[in-house]
């Protein structure tokens, strides 16, 4: 197993290299540069030119790429043009916010989706099943921003149950219990919104997986052993149906850092999604490239994690 993991990790190197080349060239192809936004009627055009020369914008792309990649390999992704701080610090800060938001959302997604999927699959064609399907279709059909806005309006502004932006109230001492509760309190509304929207695929997948498992021969065998139906479900059908869901888990874990663009933007939550949009808007190359590299790496890692999880839960799959 360790051999395979090492090999897969080594294989990420060329993949990441190709990705970095692509993203670097594409980022440079975007019209404008970080300084375009600084131009006002009073700006001296020669000053801007000077900045551009200083930042190496007129060097050939491979020279720029070389500078960037050599620094990146040493962990230095440069300075953010907009925030004037090191990219790694910026991403670290935002990443942590996003991580907690996504973690809470992911937990909620599984907490909602797994029981609903199981119920729908077990009581297939019943009223309960139809209601669950209806729910999952509605949550699938509603655009993220619509539901986010509705929730924000109702629970945030009207009922004032939840804060409407930020990650923590000002004035709380970091490290105290009240501080952490306040943080979680801020996470709740965006996390619930995110979870409601994210359940569809798992519900549908689990439901059809269960319906499929029910007709399998090994279920007949289990029944022919005289095992009560309730136990046939828990010991055989549910257990086997959760397998493909477990395979998604790897992606879910690494996806925790990806961030949710709409939700973060609407709930004014300073996370990765938010950062990505704003850095694209302001042509903050160093941030964009670093983020895409990170997302790429997480995707590769996610598929590796999924494979490892599969090999643990499914005895038929073995990696050596």
């Amino acid at each position: 197993m360790w051999k395979t993991i090492l090999r897969r990790v080594l294989m990420m190197i060329p993949q990441m290299f190709v990705l970095s080349l692509f993203i670097f060239i594409l980022a440079k192809q975007m019209p404008g540069d970080p300084f375009t936004g600084l131009i006002t009627p009073e700006t001296d055009p020669s000053r801007i030119e000077e900045l551009r020369i200083q930042a190496g914008f007129y060097d050939p792309w491979y020279v720029q790429y070389y500078h960037w990649i050599t620094n990146a390999l040493q962990g230095d992704f440069g300075q953010s043009y907009t925030y004037k701080i090191a990219v790694s610090t910026l991403i670290g800060e935002r990443g942590l916010n996003t991580f907690w938001l996504s973690l809470l959302s992911a937990i909620l997604v599984y907490l909602i989706a797994i029981p609903l999927g199981m119920l729908a699959g077990r009581y297939q064609e019943s009223f309960l099943d139809k209601s669950i399907i209806l729910y999952s279709f509605i949550s699938y059909a509603i655009p993220t921003f619509v539901l986010s806005l509705i929730f924000l309006f109702i629970f945030g502004y009207r009922l004032m149950w939840f804060p409407t932006s930020g990650t923590v109230d000002v004035g709380l001492e970091p490290g105290t219990t009240a501080y952490y509760w306040n943080k979680i309190y801020h996470l709740l509304l965006p996390a619930i919104t995110y979870a409601i929207l994210g359940t569809t695929s798992i519900i549908q997948y689990l439901r059809s997986e269960i319906i499929d498992s029910k007709t399998q021969d090994y279920v007949k065998t289990a029944r022919s052993k005289g095992i009560p139906m309730r136990k046939v479900y828990t010991r055989h059908i549910f257990r086997n149906s959760l397998l493909p869901i477990a395979a998604f888990l790897g992606f879910t874990i690494t996806g925790l850092l990806g961030g949710a663009i709409f939700i973060e933007t609407i709930f004014g939550f300073p996370g990765m999604g938010n950062l990505f949009v704003s850095s694209v808007m302001s042509r903050d190359y160093s941030v964009i490239t670093a983020l895409v590299m990170l997302f790429g790496f997480l995707t590769l890692l996610g598929s590796l994690l999924s494979d490892i999880i599969m090999s643990i839960v499914d005895p038929r799959i073995r990696i050596d």
Partner: peptide
Amino acid sequence: FQDPLSALNPL
């Protein structure tokens, strides 16, 4: 059953 592979729980 006929097909012992599918009649046994793979997990």
